[in-house]
Design a protein around this nucleic acid. Sequence first.
DNA 1: GCCGTTTTCGGCCCGACTGTTTTCAGTCG
Length: 575
Amino acid sequence: MRNEEIAAIFDEIADLLEIKGEQVFRINSYRRAARTVSDLTRDIAEVAAAGELETLQGIGKSTAEKINEYLASGRMKTHAELLESVPKGLPGLLKIAGMGPKRVALVWKELGVTNLDELKETISSGRFAALKGMGTKSVEQIAAAIQFVEKSTGRTPLGLAWPLAEEMAAELRKVKAVRRVSICGSLRRGCETIGDLDLLCESADGPAVIKAFTALPQVKRVLAAGDTKSSVIVLRRDSVEMQADCRVVPAESFGSALQYFTGSKAHNVRLREIASRKNWKLNEWGLFAGPRRLAGKDEPAIYKKLGLPPIPPEQREDRGEFEAGAIEPLIDLPDLRGDLHVHTSASDGVVDAEEIAWAAEDLGYHYISINDHSKSSAIANGLSVDRMWRQIEKLRTLNKKLKSIAVLVSCECDILSDGSLDYPDQVLAACDLVVASVHSGMRQSRDKITARVLRAMENPYVTILGHPTGRLIGQREAMDLDMEAVIAKAAETGTALELNASWQRLDLHDRHARMARDAGVMICISTDAHSVSQLGQMKFGVITARRAWLRPQDILNTRPLPAVRKWIARKRKQA
DNA sequence: GCCGTTTTCGGCCCGACTGTTTTCAGTCG
């Protein structure tokens, strides 16, 4: 799919137009088009072929023509021309805090800066400071921001941001002036990576809260601190810096502020448009009809007043939540009755099956499956066929011993490079269920790797396709898999797709999980835990599932064990 | 550049903070 490619070009067009000082509405329409294309669950080429581009939100005649032009020729004239008139290195400078389009244009026009290195040179030579409107403080801040950009790894994975935000929120709750604290922003929406942490406090004494916030032990330096708002740099567990923002509002505005700072930006813009059509005004202080406050104290009341259901944070992306009408109840952590992908010390896990089963029982699960690696995953101490037979026997014995949780016999069987499986069918048939995953040859061509995965899914013993795309967020690209074909095959064969809950994977990601749901494919949320503590990563899988609009009935491991067994048996009958 | 229960033109979300200003522009979320 070339969706991301086209979205990136539209975003770059918007950046270039901003630097050129074009009118802001034209720029925003390119940003909107970029988002629409990037969020699209269908292949843009397919939409274009069907002549349906202009039915998409924010895509009109002109943008549709540009998409068609690009699909046909691999080139977009508008984009190419802009790149001729603006140096290629300039849009990157917009990533530096304090450098907006006006200042980027200024350093380009006045100092001839065309990239980051040249910008740094003008700072050290003092030419930057000599620019109009540029004082010593601005220069210092921008120099620090450049260091930050160069040192930071970009966005922070959900699993690193979450505990940090919880720690800071817990510290703030101890502050006397603070009545309530909530995490907002992309973290509350459950995005797979987080730009910066957003914390909202209810208090009548803004300055006292800001003072406490800037003095938190996690804070490394203060970027800005007003009476109701502050930005700081904090250190992640891995010593990488990230930004955290705090806002303070009074009780009567807590709900509207929570709504506002949760975003997303696109969702908020839509919401404000709905308010303004009613001649009302929505901001972080409340929903107002003239001077009269209609809502503000609680978040759900804002939505209610605007004639909307209480939209869960994970769905606030302007991906159809305004058009959906009623919102169906989404999957929640307590809905899950088991974990169907867990490793033990038999392969590369750290505890044995009995210990992890106890831990699963403590979490309130009714069942857990043990899925150690198969023989080809030698590096993960994968089990030979002989060892696997012994493992099956051992797990059956354990299952008889444990009374309050069922231990299911399984494995994580490698999908070999030709799509065959790493164990013979007799071994797979002796398991209660089988998770099949790709662990090698991930750089195969799209055709080859897709055919390989489809072939594996045709095996009647393959219950679940494990971490389908193989991506590691921020570390390894997804395999070049035709996901539409994989989803179609899952629907056809009755194979479940895993939503791997590990925050390093979150694979399926939300967009593909939603495509799968729409195709009626069963999803299984699993932790792939290699230790007891990793069982706790289930929450990241659940929040991702909520972003994909998944309901309890879309998920295999919300079902009671007999229903799970029945579901597995349905595909196995074909054997 | 898009869009329509203010519909083919004229709108398009809104406020806080900072620095360098002497009334506001730029940036950010």
